[in-house]
Design a protein around this nucleic acid. Sequence first.
DNA 1: TGCCCCGAGTTGTCTAGACAGGATGCCCCA
DNA 2: TGGGGCATCCTGTCTAGACAACTCGGGGCA
Lengths: 231, 231
Amino acid sequence: MSAPAWKKIHDHVLAKIRAGRWVEGDRVPSEAELCERFGVARMTVGRALRELVAAQVVVRVKGAGTFVAPPRHHATVVEIRSIADEIAASGRRHETEVLLLEKSAADAALAVLMGVKRGARLFHSRLLHRDDGVPRQLEERWVNPALAPDFLAQDFTRTTPNEYLTRAAPLEQVEYGIEARQPDAETRRRLAMGRDEPCLLLRRRTWSRGRVASAARLWHPGNRHQFTGRF
Amino acid sequence: MSAPAWKKIHDHVLAKIRAGRWVEGDRVPSEAELCERFGVARMTVGRALRELVAAQVVVRVKGAGTFVAPPRHHATVVEIRSIADEIAASGRRHETEVLLLEKSAADAALAVLMGVKRGARLFHSRLLHRDDGVPRQLEERWVNPALAPDFLAQDFTRTTPNEYLTRAAPLEQVEYGIEARQPDAETRRRLAMGRDEPCLLLRRRTWSRGRVASAARLWHPGNRHQFTGRF
DNA sequence: TGCCCCGAGTTGTCTAGACAGGATGCCCCA
DNA sequence: TGGGGCATCCTGTCTAGACAACTCGGGGCA
């Protein structure tokens, strides 16, 4: 007749978040606290929170706690916006110049960002995109070889890295700010929220109408969250 | 280190289905059988099967068992194909003529199809869609008032029923054959598989290049399954 | 000061058992 | 022969407790 106990807990937490009482990054009461508050067993609270994870409402980190996930703007995954597509859509000529394409070892900062051990092998590329001959975007990528093994063998003057990577691994996008300092504990926790290892770090610098814009993006396979935090 | 026990059971069942050993409608071993086979508790098997339900691989019916779900063709929900959109996309003129818009009572067949009591109030509409003036589609709908209370107040010469209904309730589509006889036990079980009450029955008859096509669609809110069975 | 270790807190998983409620087939009775 | 009731099987939910693995901060040590 009445809703299951787990659904009541689920709805209670969801209501708090929807109402803005708890916002992105806030700590949700622990399972133990919710058990006591609702007078149920941990399995029941766990069921409620697992449903909220599936709905991308909260993120759970083993050993740390449960946190409110960033708001989703769209039900669907954000599509990758490719500079090549953008230029082509404007009817102009797009060219890619491969400045660098190599194996490299992860330094301390890269290791943290990519979730790999220091010194681990990464693929590294530096490409210049020209828009009707004018340099439009300089793009630098570090790619996890485990997830895109043939990266170095691609001809990026013909295939864009976007095309290859989306074909090689079903990626979803995580966007960060551009500040490239050592992440703090909070950011590391948010990095850990990803269900899988981050697999691609992209920094790019774009020239447009005399202005330069920079961006860094960190990708996770299977990760549906978008973080706006900076690191 | 190794995968959780529930994941092993999950993968075992999934593999059988993917390999075609168990096909649509087949009975999956009961929780008790899987418990014995894998030497785990029922909660563990339940977790595995619940994940498969979420992935739309199996359907579970309380009291009856677990069954292989119909194959999904797309990862995403089938989009509603609107005759109005189709005509407009071709650059032609679309007009709607409201032939009938009323309250009606469910007869025996409608009561079964809609999951309501015999005699329950339903909204009933009959609309003619014209394509550049030529009758293109005759559409007849029965709508559950509980889920679309303002149905009768809509001006369907301006707003299509599709637009209103998708706005009024988040619906997903279940498609059936058109044969309109009393459903048998198997079909009734499959109807029961829907998590919620069916809320809309649509029959339509389309004229195109001199040929007439008929279809009946049954909608459930929140139901992600597509059944191909006939009833 | 800087580093490491440890303990408290937290989530992930699992067990064995329990009760509720729907589905189904069978038997008995009219 | 037909229908109602009942036993049985099945899923849905929940409990109380347990162990594993991870995070994080603080205290001790070099």
